[in-house]
Amino acid sequence: MESVKLCAAAFLCTVTVVLVRQYRSEFTLPIRTAAVILLLGFGLVLLSPTVRWIETLSQQVFSADHATLLLRALCILFLVRICAALCRDCGEPTIALCLEFAGKAELILLMIPLLEQLLTGVSAFLSWQ
């Protein structure tokens, strides 16, 4: 079972960070970052068959563009969250705030084709004759 390995790895990383913080606090950030990357990578590997299945299913029934858009939005959300949390842990909430703002801007940029499609439909409805 992968969860047992994940829990063990996360616990090991946490203990390492706590120990290292007592002696050399400047090394906690790299160790923390490495732990986050390791756990995220593990999660992505577990998730990749599901993502492939969703893409196959969406091409058959649903619009592939919509499914890709939602997956990209999810990735942006996860990445921005994790990095913002890392920034806050390091005592830089301003950087975290700016990063979240940039994440929102990118999400809005992602939504523009859908917004255009929706606005075309709405204008057709409102000017119906």
């Binding site: 939602l70 959300l77 969250r81 979240e100 929102k104 999400l107 992602l110 939504m111 917004l115």
Partner: peptide, 12 residues
């Protein structure tokens, strides 16, 4: 940020 992301799914 979560609310902005959730608007994506409603937009779809």
């Amino acid at each position: 940020l979560t609310q902005t992301a959730q608007i994506c799914s409603r937009l779809c």
